[in-house]
Design a protein around this nucleic acid. Structure first.
Length: 423
RNA sequence: GGAGAAAUGGCAGAGUGGUCGAAUGCACCGGUCUUGAAAACCGGCGAGGGUCACACCUCCGGGGGUUCGAAUCCCUCUUUCUCCGCCA
Protein backbone atom coordinates (compact mmCIF):
# COMPACT_ATOMS: atom_id res chain seq x y z
CA UNK A 1 0.00 0.00 0.00
CA UNK A 2 1.33 3.40 -0.96
CA UNK A 3 1.66 6.04 1.73
CA UNK A 4 -0.82 8.84 1.44
CA UNK A 5 1.75 11.39 2.59
CA UNK A 6 3.96 10.30 -0.31
CA UNK A 7 1.10 10.47 -2.77
CA UNK A 8 0.40 14.00 -1.67
CA UNK A 9 4.00 14.95 -2.32
CA UNK A 10 4.82 13.00 -5.45
CA UNK A 11 1.54 12.77 -7.29
CA UNK A 12 2.99 13.48 -10.73
CA UNK A 13 5.97 11.19 -10.37
CA UNK A 14 3.78 8.36 -9.10
CA UNK A 15 1.32 8.71 -11.95
CA UNK A 16 4.17 8.67 -14.45
CA UNK A 17 5.71 5.58 -12.87
CA UNK A 18 2.39 3.77 -12.77
CA UNK A 19 1.95 4.33 -16.49
CA UNK A 20 4.49 1.55 -16.88
CA UNK A 21 1.84 -0.75 -15.51
CA UNK A 22 -0.45 0.57 -18.17
CA UNK A 23 -2.77 2.20 -15.73
CA UNK A 24 -3.79 5.80 -15.67
CA UNK A 25 -3.49 6.33 -11.96
CA UNK A 26 -3.90 10.07 -11.84
CA UNK A 27 -7.66 10.04 -11.16
CA UNK A 28 -7.13 7.49 -8.37
CA UNK A 29 -4.30 9.47 -6.84
CA UNK A 30 -6.27 12.67 -6.95
CA UNK A 31 -9.26 10.99 -5.43
CA UNK A 32 -7.08 9.65 -2.65
CA UNK A 33 -5.70 13.11 -2.00
CA UNK A 34 -9.14 14.65 -1.86
CA UNK A 35 -10.49 11.96 0.47
CA UNK A 36 -7.45 12.51 2.64
CA UNK A 37 -8.03 16.24 2.76
CA UNK A 38 -11.56 15.59 3.86
CA UNK A 39 -10.29 13.07 6.36
CA UNK A 40 -7.93 15.54 7.93
CA UNK A 41 -10.54 18.24 8.10
CA UNK A 42 -12.95 15.84 9.80
CA UNK A 43 -10.22 14.78 12.18
CA UNK A 44 -9.56 18.36 13.16
CA UNK A 45 -13.24 19.07 13.72
CA UNK A 46 -13.64 15.92 15.76
CA UNK A 47 -10.58 16.74 17.83
CA UNK A 48 -11.94 20.15 18.64
CA UNK A 49 -15.28 18.73 19.66
CA UNK A 50 -13.64 16.12 21.83
CA UNK A 51 -11.42 18.75 23.38
CA UNK A 52 -14.52 20.70 24.40
CA UNK A 53 -16.13 17.58 25.82
CA UNK A 54 -13.05 16.71 27.79
CA UNK A 55 -12.93 20.22 29.13
CA UNK A 56 -16.54 20.06 30.27
CA UNK A 57 -16.15 16.66 31.85
CA UNK A 58 -13.27 17.90 33.90
CA UNK A 59 -15.31 20.85 35.10
CA UNK A 60 -18.22 18.60 35.97
CA UNK A 61 -15.93 16.32 37.88
CA UNK A 62 -14.56 19.27 39.81
CA UNK A 63 -18.01 20.58 40.63
CA UNK A 64 -19.24 17.21 41.88
CA UNK A 65 -16.18 16.94 44.07
CA UNK A 66 -16.80 20.26 45.69
CA UNK A 67 -20.46 19.42 46.17
CA UNK A 68 -21.89 21.83 43.63
CA UNK A 69 -24.32 19.30 42.23
CA UNK A 70 -26.69 21.89 40.88
CA UNK A 71 -24.09 23.54 38.68
CA UNK A 72 -22.73 20.21 37.59
CA UNK A 73 -26.11 19.04 36.38
CA UNK A 74 -26.49 22.25 34.46
CA UNK A 75 -23.21 21.68 32.66
CA UNK A 76 -24.21 18.11 31.91
CA UNK A 77 -26.93 19.35 29.67
CA UNK A 78 -24.39 21.07 27.49
CA UNK A 79 -22.60 17.83 26.78
CA UNK A 80 -25.48 16.29 24.86
CA UNK A 81 -24.90 18.46 21.80
CA UNK A 82 -21.21 17.81 21.77
CA UNK A 83 -21.90 14.14 22.06
CA UNK A 84 -24.13 13.93 19.02
CA UNK A 85 -21.73 16.11 17.13
CA UNK A 86 -18.70 14.00 17.90
CA UNK A 87 -20.66 10.86 17.15
CA UNK A 88 -21.57 12.01 13.67
CA UNK A 89 -18.12 13.45 13.00
CA UNK A 90 -16.63 10.18 14.15
CA UNK A 91 -18.84 8.22 11.78
CA UNK A 92 -17.93 10.46 8.89
CA UNK A 93 -14.27 10.18 9.76
CA UNK A 94 -14.39 6.41 9.89
CA UNK A 95 -16.11 6.38 6.56
CA UNK A 96 -13.42 8.57 5.02
CA UNK A 97 -10.66 6.44 6.53
CA UNK A 98 -12.29 3.29 5.24
CA UNK A 99 -12.81 4.75 1.79
CA UNK A 100 -9.22 5.91 1.61
CA UNK A 101 -8.02 2.53 2.78
CA UNK A 102 -10.01 0.70 0.12
CA UNK A 103 -8.75 3.03 -2.55
CA UNK A 104 -5.13 2.64 -1.47
CA UNK A 105 -5.49 -1.13 -1.33
CA UNK A 106 -6.26 -1.04 -5.02
CA UNK A 107 -3.28 0.98 -6.18
CA UNK A 108 -0.26 -1.20 -7.03
CA UNK A 109 3.31 -0.47 -6.08
CA UNK A 110 5.38 2.10 -7.97
CA UNK A 111 7.71 0.38 -10.46
CA UNK A 112 11.34 1.34 -10.17
CA UNK A 113 13.22 3.32 -12.77
CA UNK A 114 14.79 0.21 -14.29
CA UNK A 115 11.50 -1.60 -14.87
CA UNK A 116 10.97 -1.81 -18.62
CA UNK A 117 7.70 -0.73 -20.16
CA UNK A 118 5.54 -3.48 -21.59
CA UNK A 119 2.22 -5.22 -21.50
CA UNK A 120 2.82 -8.89 -20.87
CA UNK A 121 5.43 -11.54 -20.21
CA UNK A 122 6.51 -11.16 -23.83
CA UNK A 123 7.92 -7.75 -23.01
CA UNK A 124 10.08 -8.86 -20.13
CA UNK A 125 13.72 -7.98 -20.55
CA UNK A 126 16.19 -10.83 -20.77
CA UNK A 127 19.03 -9.70 -18.55
CA UNK A 128 21.33 -12.65 -19.09
CA UNK A 129 21.42 -16.29 -20.07
CA UNK A 130 23.69 -18.94 -18.64
CA UNK A 131 24.66 -22.54 -19.19
CA UNK A 132 24.48 -24.73 -22.24
CA UNK A 133 21.28 -26.25 -23.45
CA UNK A 134 22.07 -29.96 -23.63
CA UNK A 135 21.77 -31.95 -26.82
CA UNK A 136 19.33 -34.72 -26.02
CA UNK A 137 19.09 -38.14 -27.61
CA UNK A 138 16.49 -38.60 -30.32
CA UNK A 139 13.66 -40.08 -28.28
CA UNK A 140 14.01 -37.72 -25.36
CA UNK A 141 10.71 -37.21 -23.54
CA UNK A 142 8.99 -34.48 -21.57
CA UNK A 143 8.99 -35.00 -17.82
CA UNK A 144 5.39 -36.21 -17.61
CA UNK A 145 6.40 -39.20 -19.71
CA UNK A 146 9.63 -39.74 -17.82
CA UNK A 147 7.95 -39.83 -14.43
CA UNK A 148 5.68 -42.61 -15.66
CA UNK A 149 8.50 -44.53 -17.22
CA UNK A 150 10.51 -44.52 -13.99
CA UNK A 151 7.51 -44.56 -11.66
CA UNK A 152 8.57 -41.54 -9.63
CA UNK A 153 5.55 -39.20 -9.81
CA UNK A 154 1.95 -40.34 -10.13
CA UNK A 155 -0.56 -37.77 -11.29
CA UNK A 156 -3.42 -40.27 -11.57
CA UNK A 157 -3.03 -41.23 -7.94
CA UNK A 158 -3.24 -37.57 -6.98
CA UNK A 159 -6.44 -37.26 -9.00
CA UNK A 160 -7.90 -40.14 -7.06
CA UNK A 161 -6.96 -38.86 -3.63
CA UNK A 162 -7.61 -35.16 -4.16
CA UNK A 163 -7.96 -33.93 -7.72
CA UNK A 164 -5.97 -32.53 -10.59
CA UNK A 165 -2.83 -30.67 -9.64
CA UNK A 166 -1.99 -32.70 -6.54
CA UNK A 167 0.61 -35.23 -7.66
CA UNK A 168 1.99 -38.07 -5.60
CA UNK A 169 5.78 -38.31 -5.49
CA UNK A 170 7.05 -41.86 -5.23
CA UNK A 171 10.26 -43.75 -4.75
CA UNK A 172 13.28 -41.88 -6.10
CA UNK A 173 10.99 -39.01 -7.07
CA UNK A 174 10.05 -38.45 -3.43
CA UNK A 175 13.64 -38.81 -2.39
CA UNK A 176 14.85 -36.36 -5.00
CA UNK A 177 12.28 -33.85 -3.90
CA UNK A 178 13.38 -34.18 -0.28
CA UNK A 179 17.00 -33.89 -1.36
CA UNK A 180 16.29 -30.63 -3.16
CA UNK A 181 14.54 -29.16 -0.13
CA UNK A 182 17.47 -30.00 2.11
CA UNK A 183 19.98 -28.76 -0.38
CA UNK A 184 18.17 -25.43 -0.81
CA UNK A 185 17.79 -24.90 2.92
CA UNK A 186 21.46 -25.69 3.46
CA UNK A 187 22.49 -23.20 0.78
CA UNK A 188 20.25 -20.52 2.23
CA UNK A 189 21.25 -20.95 5.85
CA UNK A 190 24.92 -21.00 4.79
CA UNK A 191 24.29 -17.60 3.20
CA UNK A 192 23.00 -16.26 6.51
CA UNK A 193 19.28 -16.84 6.18
CA UNK A 194 17.71 -17.95 9.44
CA UNK A 195 15.62 -21.08 8.98
CA UNK A 196 11.96 -20.91 9.95
CA UNK A 197 9.17 -23.45 10.03
CA UNK A 198 5.89 -21.64 9.90
CA UNK A 199 2.17 -22.43 9.81
CA UNK A 200 0.67 -23.39 6.49
CA UNK A 201 -2.61 -21.72 7.33
CA UNK A 202 -2.84 -17.99 7.95
CA UNK A 203 -5.50 -15.62 9.17
CA UNK A 204 -7.02 -12.74 7.31
CA UNK A 205 -4.75 -10.10 8.84
CA UNK A 206 -1.70 -11.92 7.48
CA UNK A 207 -3.28 -12.07 4.04
CA UNK A 208 -3.75 -8.32 4.09
CA UNK A 209 -0.25 -7.76 5.40
CA UNK A 210 1.54 -9.19 2.40
CA UNK A 211 -1.06 -8.12 -0.16
CA UNK A 212 -2.88 -11.34 -1.05
CA UNK A 213 -6.03 -9.77 0.35
CA UNK A 214 -8.31 -8.10 -0.38
CA UNK A 215 -8.02 -8.74 -4.09
CA UNK A 216 -6.58 -12.14 -4.64
CA UNK A 217 -8.89 -14.25 -2.50
CA UNK A 218 -9.59 -16.29 -5.59
CA UNK A 219 -6.00 -17.51 -5.65
CA UNK A 220 -6.06 -18.89 -2.13
CA UNK A 221 -7.86 -21.84 -0.63
CA UNK A 222 -10.09 -20.65 2.15
CA UNK A 223 -11.00 -22.81 5.11
CA UNK A 224 -14.44 -21.48 5.88
CA UNK A 225 -15.11 -23.05 9.24
CA UNK A 226 -12.15 -21.36 10.80
CA UNK A 227 -11.76 -18.46 8.41
CA UNK A 228 -8.17 -19.32 7.54
CA UNK A 229 -6.31 -19.44 4.25
CA UNK A 230 -3.88 -22.05 2.98
CA UNK A 231 -0.69 -20.22 2.15
CA UNK A 232 0.06 -19.61 -1.53
CA UNK A 233 3.71 -19.03 -0.59
CA UNK A 234 5.88 -18.98 2.53
CA UNK A 235 6.17 -15.25 1.96
CA UNK A 236 2.86 -14.79 3.74
CA UNK A 237 3.55 -16.43 7.11
CA UNK A 238 7.25 -15.55 7.22
CA UNK A 239 6.85 -11.87 6.38
CA UNK A 240 4.00 -11.62 8.86
CA UNK A 241 6.30 -12.73 11.65
CA UNK A 242 7.22 -9.07 11.87
CA UNK A 243 3.79 -7.58 11.29
CA UNK A 244 3.24 -4.58 13.54
CA UNK A 245 6.76 -4.58 14.91
CA UNK A 246 8.98 -1.63 15.61
CA UNK A 247 12.56 -2.77 15.15
CA UNK A 248 15.80 -1.15 16.17
CA UNK A 249 18.02 -0.05 13.32
CA UNK A 250 20.74 -2.39 14.51
CA UNK A 251 18.38 -5.38 14.09
CA UNK A 252 18.45 -4.86 10.33
CA UNK A 253 18.82 -6.62 8.06
CA UNK A 254 16.78 -9.66 8.98
CA UNK A 255 17.18 -12.62 6.65
CA UNK A 256 14.98 -15.70 6.83
CA UNK A 257 14.38 -18.83 4.84
CA UNK A 258 11.71 -21.46 5.05
CA UNK A 259 10.37 -24.49 3.31
CA UNK A 260 6.60 -24.85 2.92
CA UNK A 261 4.12 -26.43 0.61
CA UNK A 262 2.22 -23.80 -1.36
CA UNK A 263 -1.44 -23.99 -2.30
CA UNK A 264 -2.88 -22.14 -5.26
CA UNK A 265 -6.29 -22.44 -6.79
CA UNK A 266 -5.02 -21.24 -10.18
CA UNK A 267 -8.54 -20.51 -11.27
CA UNK A 268 -8.67 -19.95 -15.00
CA UNK A 269 -5.41 -21.70 -15.88
CA UNK A 270 -5.54 -24.24 -18.66
CA UNK A 271 -3.71 -25.55 -21.69
CA UNK A 272 -0.20 -26.88 -22.15
CA UNK A 273 1.07 -24.63 -19.35
CA UNK A 274 -0.57 -26.86 -16.79
CA UNK A 275 0.80 -30.10 -18.17
CA UNK A 276 2.68 -32.30 -15.71
CA UNK A 277 4.60 -30.35 -13.10
CA UNK A 278 4.31 -27.03 -14.87
CA UNK A 279 1.45 -25.72 -12.80
CA UNK A 280 0.07 -27.39 -9.69
CA UNK A 281 -2.42 -26.68 -6.94
CA UNK A 282 0.02 -27.88 -4.33
CA UNK A 283 3.76 -27.61 -4.70
CA UNK A 284 6.84 -27.23 -2.54
CA UNK A 285 8.98 -24.17 -2.36
CA UNK A 286 11.88 -22.85 -0.33
CA UNK A 287 11.70 -19.12 0.11
CA UNK A 288 14.20 -16.47 1.16
CA UNK A 289 13.12 -13.19 2.73
CA UNK A 290 14.79 -10.04 3.90
CA UNK A 291 13.76 -7.05 5.95
CA UNK A 292 16.10 -4.23 5.06
CA UNK A 293 17.03 -0.68 5.81
CA UNK A 294 15.72 1.46 2.92
CA UNK A 295 19.26 2.46 2.00
CA UNK A 296 20.27 -1.14 1.48
CA UNK A 297 17.33 -2.81 -0.18
CA UNK A 298 18.53 -2.31 -3.75
CA UNK A 299 21.82 -3.93 -2.92
CA UNK A 300 20.01 -6.68 -1.06
CA UNK A 301 17.95 -7.49 -4.12
CA UNK A 302 21.11 -7.82 -6.20
CA UNK A 303 22.62 -10.08 -3.57
CA UNK A 304 19.55 -12.30 -3.64
CA UNK A 305 19.80 -12.56 -7.40
CA UNK A 306 23.43 -13.61 -7.08
CA UNK A 307 22.46 -16.18 -4.47
CA UNK A 308 19.81 -17.78 -6.67
CA UNK A 309 22.22 -17.77 -9.61
CA UNK A 310 24.71 -19.69 -7.57
CA UNK A 311 22.20 -22.41 -6.82
CA UNK A 312 21.27 -22.81 -10.47
CA UNK A 313 24.93 -22.90 -11.43
CA UNK A 314 25.55 -25.68 -8.94
CA UNK A 315 22.61 -27.61 -10.32
CA UNK A 316 24.11 -27.07 -13.76
CA UNK A 317 20.84 -26.14 -15.32
CA UNK A 318 20.57 -23.75 -18.27
CA UNK A 319 18.78 -20.64 -17.07
CA UNK A 320 18.10 -17.05 -17.85
CA UNK A 321 17.24 -14.00 -15.82
CA UNK A 322 14.43 -11.66 -16.73
CA UNK A 323 13.59 -8.23 -15.51
CA UNK A 324 9.82 -8.10 -15.43
CA UNK A 325 8.16 -5.36 -17.42
CA UNK A 326 5.56 -3.05 -15.94
CA UNK A 327 2.68 -5.06 -17.31
CA UNK A 328 3.90 -8.33 -15.81
CA UNK A 329 5.15 -6.95 -12.50
CA UNK A 330 3.31 -8.25 -9.46
CA UNK A 331 0.90 -5.90 -7.69
CA UNK A 332 3.08 -5.44 -4.61
CA UNK A 333 6.51 -5.37 -6.26
CA UNK A 334 8.66 -2.44 -7.31
CA UNK A 335 11.18 -4.55 -9.18
CA UNK A 336 11.21 -8.26 -9.90
CA UNK A 337 13.72 -10.61 -11.45
CA UNK A 338 12.42 -13.94 -12.68
CA UNK A 339 14.63 -16.95 -13.15
CA UNK A 340 13.69 -19.44 -15.82
CA UNK A 341 15.15 -22.86 -16.44
CA UNK A 342 15.13 -24.27 -19.94
CA UNK A 343 13.01 -27.34 -20.20
CA UNK A 344 14.70 -29.07 -23.07
CA UNK A 345 12.12 -31.66 -23.94
CA UNK A 346 9.28 -29.17 -23.83
CA UNK A 347 11.43 -26.58 -25.55
CA UNK A 348 10.28 -23.82 -23.24
CA UNK A 349 11.46 -21.74 -20.34
CA UNK A 350 9.95 -22.49 -16.94
CA UNK A 351 9.85 -19.93 -14.15
CA UNK A 352 11.62 -21.34 -11.10
CA UNK A 353 12.19 -18.22 -9.03
CA UNK A 354 10.92 -14.73 -8.67
CA UNK A 355 12.92 -12.27 -6.62
CA UNK A 356 11.30 -8.97 -5.66
CA UNK A 357 11.84 -5.78 -3.77
CA UNK A 358 8.60 -4.49 -2.27
CA UNK A 359 10.17 -1.37 -0.80
CA UNK A 360 7.71 0.01 1.77
CA UNK A 361 4.62 -1.34 0.04
CA UNK A 362 4.17 -4.37 2.27
CA UNK A 363 5.72 -2.70 5.29
CA UNK A 364 3.08 -0.01 5.17
CA UNK A 365 0.33 -2.61 5.32
CA UNK A 366 2.23 -4.58 7.92
CA UNK A 367 3.13 -1.52 10.00
CA UNK A 368 6.64 -2.87 9.99
CA UNK A 369 8.95 -0.07 11.06
CA UNK A 370 12.34 0.55 12.55
CA UNK A 371 13.63 3.34 14.72
CA UNK A 372 16.19 5.41 12.84
CA UNK A 373 19.17 7.31 14.15
CA UNK A 374 17.06 10.39 14.89
CA UNK A 375 14.72 8.26 16.99
CA UNK A 376 12.01 8.67 14.42
CA UNK A 377 10.19 5.68 13.02
CA UNK A 378 10.35 4.69 9.39
CA UNK A 379 8.92 1.89 7.32
CA UNK A 380 11.37 -0.90 6.58
CA UNK A 381 11.77 -2.50 3.17
CA UNK A 382 10.78 -6.11 2.53
CA UNK A 383 12.12 -8.42 -0.15
CA UNK A 384 11.65 -12.03 -1.01
CA UNK A 385 12.48 -14.64 -3.56
CA UNK A 386 12.19 -18.32 -4.29
CA UNK A 387 15.27 -20.37 -3.64
CA UNK A 388 13.76 -22.32 -5.19
CA UNK A 389 10.40 -23.62 -6.38
CA UNK A 390 10.54 -27.40 -6.56
CA UNK A 391 8.35 -28.82 -9.34
CA UNK A 392 9.81 -26.93 -12.25
CA UNK A 393 13.34 -27.49 -11.02
CA UNK A 394 12.44 -31.15 -10.88
CA UNK A 395 11.05 -30.96 -14.41
CA UNK A 396 14.22 -29.22 -15.54
CA UNK A 397 16.45 -31.85 -13.97
CA UNK A 398 14.45 -34.76 -15.31
CA UNK A 399 14.38 -33.42 -18.83
CA UNK A 400 17.88 -31.99 -19.08
CA UNK A 401 19.63 -34.85 -17.34
CA UNK A 402 17.86 -37.68 -19.19
CA UNK A 403 19.92 -40.18 -21.12
CA UNK A 404 18.95 -43.30 -22.99
CA UNK A 405 19.53 -45.42 -19.94
CA UNK A 406 18.20 -43.25 -17.15
CA UNK A 407 18.21 -39.83 -15.57
CA UNK A 408 21.42 -38.60 -14.02
CA UNK A 409 21.40 -36.73 -10.75
CA UNK A 410 23.21 -33.37 -10.61
CA UNK A 411 26.49 -33.84 -8.79
CA UNK A 412 25.63 -31.47 -5.97
CA UNK A 413 22.51 -33.50 -5.13
CA UNK A 414 24.05 -36.95 -5.07
CA UNK A 415 25.04 -36.78 -1.39
CA UNK A 416 21.50 -35.65 -0.56
CA UNK A 417 19.84 -38.35 -2.67
CA UNK A 418 22.02 -41.31 -1.94
CA UNK A 419 21.89 -42.37 -5.60
CA UNK A 420 23.26 -40.92 -8.81
CA UNK A 421 20.79 -42.16 -11.35
CA UNK A 422 17.10 -42.79 -11.79
CA UNK A 423 16.60 -45.84 -13.96
C1' G B 1 -14.32 -30.46 24.35
C1' G B 2 -15.72 -28.93 29.98
C1' A B 3 -14.52 -25.56 34.49
C1' G B 4 -11.90 -21.40 36.34
C1' A B 5 -8.28 -17.17 36.09
C1' A B 6 -5.98 -13.48 33.35
C1' A B 7 -4.52 -9.83 29.17
C1' U B 8 -1.53 -2.55 31.19
C1' G B 9 4.63 0.80 28.07
C1' G B 10 11.07 -3.30 25.81
C1' C B 11 10.39 -6.49 30.39
C1' A B 12 8.41 -6.93 35.38
C1' G B 13 4.39 -4.82 37.81
C1' A B 14 0.81 -0.90 40.40
C1' G B 15 -3.64 1.18 39.21
C1' U B 16 -11.54 -0.93 40.21
C1' G B 17 -15.30 5.59 37.67
C1' G B 18 -12.66 11.97 37.43
C1' U B 19 -5.95 16.01 35.80
C1' C B 20 -3.96 8.26 34.49
C1' G B 21 -0.80 8.12 28.77
C1' A B 22 -0.67 5.60 33.19
C1' A B 23 3.14 4.74 39.94
C1' U B 24 7.46 1.87 40.90
C1' G B 25 11.61 -1.34 39.53
C1' C B 26 14.71 -3.23 35.64
C1' A B 27 16.54 -2.30 30.80
C1' C B 28 17.91 1.69 27.55
C1' C B 29 19.88 6.91 26.23
C1' G B 30 22.37 11.59 27.90
C1' G B 31 25.10 14.12 31.86
C1' U B 32 28.10 14.65 36.62
C1' C B 33 32.01 11.97 39.00
C1' U B 34 36.45 8.70 37.20
C1' U B 35 42.85 7.91 33.83
C1' G B 36 38.94 4.43 31.93
C1' A B 37 34.97 1.37 33.60
C1' A B 38 31.62 0.10 37.52
C1' A B 39 28.85 2.18 41.52
C1' A B 40 26.33 6.59 43.00
C1' C B 41 23.64 10.91 41.71
C1' C B 42 20.84 14.16 38.01
C1' G B 43 17.88 14.19 33.59
C1' G B 44 15.43 11.68 29.57
C1' C B 45 12.85 7.44 27.86
C1' G B 46 5.65 4.22 24.06
C1' A B 47 2.98 4.80 19.44
C1' G B 48 -0.38 7.10 15.86
C1' G B 49 -3.06 11.47 13.97
C1' G B 50 -2.60 16.75 13.59
C1' U B 51 0.54 21.47 13.27
C1' C B 52 5.72 25.41 10.17
C1' A B 53 6.14 24.50 15.32
C1' C B 54 2.90 24.36 19.51
C1' A B 55 -1.94 23.42 21.03
C1' C B 56 -5.03 19.51 20.61
C1' C B 57 -6.94 14.38 19.68
C1' U B 58 -6.56 8.86 19.90
C1' C B 59 -4.57 4.27 21.89
C1' C B 60 -4.07 0.17 28.70
C1' G B 61 -5.55 -7.59 23.79
C1' G B 62 -9.73 -6.57 19.37
C1' G B 63 -14.82 -4.81 18.69
C1' G B 64 -19.30 -2.79 20.85
C1' G B 65 -22.02 -0.54 25.08
C1' U B 66 -23.20 2.27 29.93
C1' U B 67 -21.67 7.31 31.80
C1' C B 68 -20.92 14.35 31.75
C1' G B 69 -16.38 11.27 32.36
C1' A B 70 -13.79 4.30 31.49
C1' A B 71 -7.36 1.12 32.01
C1' U B 72 -11.23 0.77 35.85
C1' C B 73 -18.42 -1.15 34.95
C1' C B 74 -21.35 -4.33 31.10
C1' C B 75 -21.52 -7.43 26.44
C1' U B 76 -18.73 -9.99 22.80
C1' C B 77 -14.50 -11.98 20.24
C1' U B 78 -9.38 -13.47 20.47
C1' U B 79 -5.26 -15.11 23.09
C1' U B 80 -2.63 -17.00 27.43
C1' C B 81 -2.43 -19.77 32.06
C1' U B 82 -4.40 -23.65 35.66
C1' C B 83 -7.45 -28.09 36.35
C1' C B 84 -10.30 -32.18 33.88
C1' G B 85 -11.07 -35.07 29.36
C1' C B 86 -8.85 -36.62 24.69
C1' C B 87 -4.52 -37.26 21.83
C1' A B 88 0.17 -37.22 17.49
Amino acid sequence: MLQIAQIREHKEAFATALKKRNIDAMPLLEKAISIDENRRSLQTQLDETLAQSNQLSKQIGGLFKSGKTEEANQLKEQTADLKTKSKSLGDELNQAVEELQQLLYNIPNIPQESVPAGNSDEDNEVVSQHGDIPQLHTDAQPHWELVKKYDIIDFELGNKITGAGFPVYKNKGARLQRALINYFLDKNTAAGYQEMQVPHLVNEASGYGTGQLPDKEGQMYHVGNDDLYLIPTAEVPITNIYRGDLLEEKDLPIAMTGYTPCFRREAGSYGSDVRGLNRLHQFDKVEILRIEHPDNSDGALDAMVVHVKEILEELELPYRILRLCGGDLGFTSSLTYDFEVYSTAQEKWLEVSSVSNFKTFQANRLKLRYRNADKGTELAHTLNGSALALPRILAGILENYQTEDGINIPKVLIPYCGFDKID
